[in-house]
Write a protein that binds this DNA or RNA. Structure first.
Lengths: 207, 207
DNA sequence: CAGTGTGAAGCACTTCACAGCC
DNA sequence: GGCTGTGAAGTGCTTCACACTG
């Protein structure tokens, strides 16, 4: 399949959230106009995004909510369980795994790791914190798909390397550090410092 | 000044982090090549980004680390204190305000708010949680610049409206919901669900 | 006739390539 | 000689506009 822009995938995620809301309210159909209004984009953009994956609508009528919901879930790969390990037994990982949409969309925490002896062995949500050095061994058994990396900025690269050695090919990185991964490993960076500095910039450059 | 792309501002933030590291190691000069290597971009991109704001380098020599650090801080508006309120006394806000770079870059928490009676009045980091209905009154006294919105997805728009009424013109939104703000108010969305779904998509579309 | 699907046009960001300066 | 600064070219995402169809 043709390469899909990152921005397109992100918008699909937003469309999905609105479609789920419509589904909960038992609304049967919607239109590109309506989807656009609730997603902060334009109707042309919605139609273009969907067109990369097929023609899901009916001309003159719009889209069937249940059908489009299913198709987008399928496209995003949400039809299965994703096994997630949290590296860094801190507040960010905890906030993420407690988020109700997390389990709802098929993400399951199969392990929590830290390198701090004071944390190892302690209870953490429904898990017991394990020693980070055990990640590679455990991974052979647990077969995690995704690692959430939420540690302080020191030695982020070292932990990325460990995660990659453990055979995990997708990383959600909350550490404010630039990291390299081999081809075939996808990294998404969530950098709060960067976002705050973006706000600082915006506030500073107003008329 | 010419409008600057969001992506440029985000990269400046990354350059700054590397420059601070160089400064800590007392390294006096650097080059666009080196900055690029540590920021996941190209040297041409670095030079182009900087060129929007002036010419900070010396041909044949590169950039003075302290000078460029200062200039980027200035550009990003980090030369002053930014007063931040946290709306939603949960783990995300706590993780953010405990992040050492937060205070270091001039962001100060001046208030924490929640609507849960069980949380109001309780200690939360160095703050006492206040009732969200008091935000507007308090803002007249505290003059916050930025609101960090970290509440569950319900009624995000209502809280955005309240924040805007309180005169705050920059919002960092962690709630997975599309929100509208009047012109003049900048919103940055950090959507973890979207990032995870991006990873799900990437994992599902491999050869 | 309302609303989709889609080539074509428009626009914005990135990369190139080289003149200019230290 | 090395590295910056920058017009020009390239690339890719977004918007337009309209043919098409239920």
């Amino acid at each position: 399949m043709k390469r899909i822009a990152d921005s397109t995938v992100r918008r699909l995620s937003v469309y999905l959230r609105y479609l789920e809301e419509l589904e909960a309210r038992s609304i049967a159909t919607t239109s590109s106009d309506e989807l656009a209004a609730h997603s902060g984009t334009t109707s042309a953009q919605v139609r273009k995004d969907l067109s990369f994956f097929g023609s899901f609508g009916k001309r003159g009528l719009g889209y069937s909510v249940p059908e489009l919901t299913d198709r987008i879930r399928q496209i995003l790969g949400l039809g299965r369980e994703w096994r997630v390990v949290i590296v860094g037994a801190g507040k960010i990982g905890s906030a993420l795994s407690n988020y109700r949409g997390f389990a709802q969309r098929g993400f399951t925490v199969v392990g929590v790791y830290d390198n701090d002896p004071r944390k190892i062995g302690k209870r953490w949500d429904a898990q017991t914190v394990r020693d980070i050095v055990e990640l590679e061994d455990d991974a052979r058994r647990d077969r995690p798909d995704i690692a959430v990396l939420a540690i302080p900025a020191d030695d982020v690269q070292g932990e990325v390397d460990r995660i990659v050695r453990a055979g995990i090919r997708a990383i959600l990185n909350f550490a404010p550090a630039q990291v390299n991964a081999p081809p075939g490993v996808t990294i998404k960076n969530v950098n709060m410092a960067m976002e705050l500095e973006g706000l600082s910039y915006a506030l500073s450059h107003r008329e």
